[in-house]
Write a protein that binds this DNA or RNA. Structure first.
Lengths: 360, 360
DNA sequence: CTGAAAGCGCTAACAT
DNA sequence: ATGTTAGCGCTTTCAG
C-alpha cells in the first residue's frame, strides 16, 4: 500500500495529534477516556479536532476493541403495524446508549431470518429478534455466537421479553361471557408464532373455564385481507363473538362483516389484540392492549445489560396486558346460529368453509 | 497488547490459512476474489473455512478497504404508516446488493436528524434520507461527506426520488369539481415537509384552474388525532369536500366526522393521500396512490449507482401517482354552509376556529 | 498525566 | 496462481 501523503476525506487521529502537538494516544484518550487526561488537554485536543472535522474511524475502533457500538433488530414484517412502535422503542433505547441499529426484515420467512441473523452476527454486539419464526435450536446456535434477546418468543436460556396477552385474552373471554355469549371463535395467526400459540391456549383455557364453546378459524398470515377472507367461515360457524389473533386481522373481519351487512356489535362482537390500530377502526375496536414500544425498549435495555455483564442468564421479562373495551363488543345476539345463505356466495360454499373451520 | 495464542471466539484468516496450508492472501482471495484462484484452491479453502466456522471480520475488512457494505436509512417517524413499506422496499434492494441497513428515526426533529446523519456518515457507504426535515444547506453538508439520496425532498445537486403527488392531487380536485363541489379545504401537513408544500401548491393551482374556492386548515403533525382535531374547523368552513395531507390525517377526519354525526360522502367528501391505509378505513377512502415501496427501492438502487460510479450527478427520479376513487367521495351536498352550532362546543369557539382557518 | 509501540484482521501491491 | 509484506486508524499496555 502506497504512502498516502495527501490529506484524505476525513482527518485521522495522527493529523489531529500533529496539529495539537500531542501523541496519538492522547487524542484517542481525549475521545474515549477523557478522565485520564488533564482537563485542559482534553479541551485543547477537542478544539483542534473540531476545527479539523475529525471523527474517530469506527471500523478502526471496532477492529481494535472488538466493540462495534451497533445492534441488530430483526422483525418478520416491518409493514405489520405491530412492529413500528416496537422498532421505535428499541431505537430510542439504543440511541440513548450510543448504539446504532441495523434493521432486518425476514418477510415472515425462517430461512431469511436465519440468513439475517448470521449476517448481523458478524457486525453487531448483540441482536434483538422480535417474534422469531426460527426453531429454538437455530436461535440457540445464533445466541451462541452473539448475545440475542427475544421478544415474544419464549426459549429457555435466552433472555426474552414477553408480552403476556394471555391475561388480556382471558379478560376478553370473560367479557364476552358476561355479555351472554355462549359460542365464540378464535381467528388464529401464524402457526410458528409464539404469540399465536400463547393466545390460542389462553382462549381455550378461558373458554372452557367459562363454559363457552370455542371454534378456531385459521388465518395463517396476520393480514387485513386474511381477516376479510375469514368472514364467511365465521358466519357459518354460528358464533356470536370472535377474538382475532391481532388488530389487523380484526380490522379485516370488521370490514368483511360490514360488506356482508352484519352489524357490529349488534349481531357479532369482535375483539382484537395488540391495540396497534384499534382506535382508528370504525367502530373503535375492543382489544387487548400491549405496550409494544415498551417491549422494544426493554429488549434493548436487557440486551445492553447482557453485554455489560455477561452473567445475566435466562432473564424473562413479562409485560402484562389488559382488555380495552371500545365499541365492537355488546350483548350476544338473540339468534345463536346465523345462516350463511344471506351472503351471495351460496350455501354450498359456506358449508365447505364450515367444515374447514374445525381444522385448526 | 499481549500475544493472543488461545483461539478466540471466531477464527481469524491466519488460522484458516495455517489449517489449509496456504497464505493469508489466498484465504482472503478465496472469499473476495475467487476468480483469481485455481478453482480447486478456492474449494479447499472454503471447505476448511467452513469447518472452522470462519467468517471474515467486517471491521478489519472495512478498515482495510474503506468499504463498509452498509447503508443508512433515516425517516421522520417509523410509526407513520407511510414509511414501513418504504423501509421494506429499501431493505430488499439493499439486501440484494449485499448491504446491511441502519435505520434511524428522527422523530420529526431536524436536530435529531442532523445528529443521526452525522453519526451514520462515519460508518456507512451512503445514506437515504426520506422526507428530510433539514435545511437544504445542512443536507448538502452531509452529502459532502457521504453520498446521500433523498426521498420526497427536492434539492438540486442531490440525487433524489420524488413521489409526484401533484398529478394525483390535480385529479382529485378535478374529481371534486366534477361532482359539483364549489368550495373545498386542504388540511395541510408539516410545514417543513416538501410533500406538504408540493401538495398545497398543486391543490391551489388546481382549485383556481377549476374555479373552486379553497380554504386551508393546518394539521401540523400528520397524525390521526390531528385529523380528528381539525373537524370543527372543517365544519365551520362551509366546504363540501376536503383533501387531506395524507391518509392518516384523512382517517382522523373520517372518525371525527362520524362522531359529529356528519355522513361521508353524503354531507362531506374526503380524499386522502399516499394510499397507505386507505383500503382499511370505513368507508374505504378515496385517495391519491403512491408506490412508497418502489420509492424506497429506487432510492437505494440510485444510491448504489452513485456509489458505483460517482459521476451520477443530480439524478431526479419522479414516480407518478393517480387518484383512486373509493367510497368517501360523492356529489356535493346541497347545503353549502354547515353551521358549527350542531357540535356541543358552541358557536364562539367555532368562530374562533373559523378565523384561524385562513392562516395557512 | 502523557508518550512509544505493538497489534486488531484483513486487503492490495508487488514479487515470484 | 500464490506468497510477502506493508499498512488501514485506532486502542492499550507499559514506561516514564
Amino acid at each position: 500500500m502506497p504512502e498516502t501523503e495527501a490529506p484524505r476525506g476525513t482527518p485521522t487521529i495522527r493529523e489531529v495529534a500533529d496539529a495539537a502537538g500531542v501523541s496519538r494516544a492522547t487524542v484517542s484518550r481525549a475521545f474515549s477516556r477523557p478522565e485520564l487526561l488533564k482537563p485542559s488537554t482534553v479541551e485543547h485536543v477537542q478544539a483542534i479536532a473540531g476545527r479539523l472535522g475529525y471523527t474517530p474511524n469506527v471500523a478502526a475502533r471496532a477492529l481494535s476493541t472488538g466493540r462495534y457500538a451497533t445492534l441488530a433488530l430483526v422483525v418478520p414484517d416491518i409493514a405489520n403495524p405491530f412492529f413500528p412502535p416496537l422498532v421505535r422503542g428499541a431505537q430510542q433505547a439504543a440511541d440513548q446508549a450510543g448504539y446504532c441499529v441495523f434493521l432486518g426484515d425476514s418477510d415472515e420467512s425462517p430461512a431469511r431470518e436465519d440468513v439475517l441473523l448470521g449476517r448481523f452476527a458478524g457486525q453487531v454486539e448483540g441482536i434483538v429478534s422480535a417474534s422469531s419464526r426460527l426453531a429454538a435450536q437455530v436461535v440457540r446456535r445464533h445466541a451462541d455466537r452473539r448475545p440475542v434477546v427475544l421478544v415474544n418468543r419464549d426459549i429457555k436460556g435466552i433472555p426474552r421479553v414477553l408480552i403476556d396477552t394471555a391475561s388480556g385474552i382471558t379478560a376478553a373471554v370473560a367479557h364476552l361471557a358476561e355479555l351472554g355469549h355462549r359460542r365464540i371463535a378464535y381467528v388464529s395467526g401464524p402457526q410458528t408464532s409464539w404469540s399465536n400459540q400463547q393466545r390460542r391456549r389462553a382462549i381455550q383455557r378461558a373458554s372452557s373455564a367459562s363454559g363457552l364453546e370455542l371454534v378456531t378459524v385459521a388465518a395463517r398470515r396476520p393480514t387485513y385481507d386474511s381477516g376479510v377472507a375469514r368472514v364467511l367461515d365465521l358466519l357459518a360457524s354460528g358464533v356470536t363473538g370472535v377474538v382475532a389473533f391481532d388488530d389487523v386481522v380484526a380490522q379485516g373481519i370488521l370490514a368483511g362483516l360490514a360488506t356482508a351487512g352484519v352489524s357490529v356489535p349488534d349481531q357479532l362482537s369482535v375483539i382484537g389484540c395488540d391495540d396497534v390500530v384499534a382506535a382508528t377502526t370504525s367502530p373503535p375496536l375492543t382489544t387487548v392492549s400491549a405496550r409494544t414500544d415498551e417491549a422494544g425498549r426493554f429488549a434493548v435495555e436487557l440486551l445492553l445489560r447482557v453485554l455489560g455483564s455477561s452473567d445475566v442468564r435466562d432473564a424473562r421479562y413479562v409485560l402484562d396486558t389488559r382488555l380495552i373495551v371500545r365499541a365492537t363488543t355488546g350483548p350476544a345476539a338473540k339468534i345463536a346460529s346465523r345462516s350463511a345463505n344471506r351472503t351471495t356466495s351460496g350455501g354450498g360454499r359456506a358449508m365447505q368453509a364450515g367444515r374447514k373451520i374445525f381444522g385448526s
